[in-house]
Design a protein around this nucleic acid. Sequence first.
DNA 1: ATCCCGAGGG
DNA 2: CCCTCTGGAT
Length: 204
Amino acid sequence: MASLAKAYPNAHCELNYSNPLELLVATILSARCTDQRVNLVTAKLFKKYRSAADYARVPLPELEQDIRTTGFYRNKARSLKGCGQALVERHDGQVPNTMEALTQLDGVGRKTANVVLGNAFHLNYGVVVDTHVARLAQRLGLTQEKDPEKIEQALMALVPQTQWTQFSHWLIWHGRRRCTARKPDCRGCELRALCPRIGVTTPI
DNA sequence: ATCCCGAGGG
DNA sequence: CCCTCTGGAT
């Protein structure tokens, strides 16, 4: 973990947002999509949609077109509109700050909820297990589990609670920059010394 | 287990 | 062409 801290001292959430609602929306859009593309879409989106009520009242086809290039746009549009309606009806238009309330929102699972709790509310409720964290936890031999929730349990047991959110960012940054899915750069990897794959399944 | 879905890299 | 990108619902 010290190696990661040294390699990525400035690791942080790379989605652009200025309030909890914007982070919730950006994170829902980020499913199977690069954060760079999400930021491209939200740059326009957040000027048009400024409150939960704006998502609640927009016609679905219009919202679909506004987010189309993030992929899965029909599902995501339904989720965003459903979230907007739920926030207006049950949460006074505000984004809730508990796992229970967040995961009841349309299209919000533990991963998305942990992103919102950890970054918008600065609560270390859990570890964000996305595609990068899951892949790196496997490669680094931190767990053999494949189910995201079990991976999260394993990582929470390994890392002090005060670092859960930061630890997620370290793995995500490392996964994007070095330990990529298709072609990991093992030569320049900061974690060579402690990676079980070096010299085994991955040469050089 | 399968579906949703566009965009970019190799 | 195939795989991957800060997943979640059925």
